[in-house]
């Protein structure tokens, strides 16, 4: 949670600097973005998530697939409700809760949609932490994992395990791992439409 405060502080400080000063940072944004994407790639490459996918069987692939389809359809509905162009709505939804990736990727093309992408995915993470314990009263706990999207392998994993039980750990981790692997490819693909 402490890191979340740092993230919000960095965003607020940036907005204040942008609004009230004329500082120019050149291409630092792009350099940092590519550095972050490279580090994310290294982390994915050395991860042992693939091994666990094999052990879980069908649900390992079906649950993330449901999350992808459901998130994109939810984004499509939001696009009509909010009058946001479909391309941006799908790109925002394709973050699957990974706000630190979605925001910067979208901000490359539009600062406003970058901030929406960031906040929408941050809100998804926060809502998962708040409502996973409520959701599992009515929905099977392993299926309710889908609400957390890509965050179920890290930030929302403790809540899921605490309330869903330790037997849910591998499903949640693999679900998050697969979505974490999909999001960096899917968002740029949608943005190129």
């Amino acid at each position: 949670m402490n890191f979340l405060y740092l993230v919000l502080a960095a965003l607020s400080a940036g907005i204040l600097v942008g609004k009230y000063t004329g500082f120019q940072f050149g291409n630092s944004y792009e350099v940092m973005l590519y550095a972050l994407i490279f580090i994310i790639g290294v982390d994915l490459g050395k991860s042992r998530g693939l091994k666990e996918i094999k052990e879980l069987g069908k649900i390992a692939l079906i649950l993330p697939l449901a999350t992808v389809v459901g998130s994109l359809l939810g984004g499509l509905l939001a696009s009509f409700l909010l009058n946001v162009p479909v391309k941006w709505a799908l790109a925002i939804s394709a973050g699957f809760g990974w706000y630190s990736l979605t925001g910067p990727l979208l901000a490359q093309y539009s600062p406003v949609y970058g901030v929406v992408g960031f906040l929408a995915n941050l809100t998804r993470e926060i809502l998962t932490i708040l409502f996973y314990p409520v959701a599992i009263r009515r929905i099977p706990k392993e299926l309710a994992v889908s609400m957390g999207g890509a965050t179920t392998m890290d930030s929302t994993l403790p809540v899921i395990v605490k309330f869903g039980g330790s037997e849910i750990t591998v499903i949640a981790f693999v679900h998050g791992f697969i979505l974490t692997a999909i999001a960096p490819f899917l968002i740029p693909l949608i943005l190129q439409l």
Binding site: L63, G70, G74, G75, L119, T123, L127, I139, E142, S146
Partner: peptide
């Protein structure tokens, strides 16, 4: 911005849950 963010978050969560129930059930 706030309304848009909450709408996206809620609808993506509900969409995911609906499809998880549909496909995972």
């Amino acid at each position: 911005l706030f309304v848009a963010s909450v709408t996206f978050a809620v609808l993506t969560i509900l969409g995911s849950l609906a499809f998880a129930m549909l496909m995972g059930g």
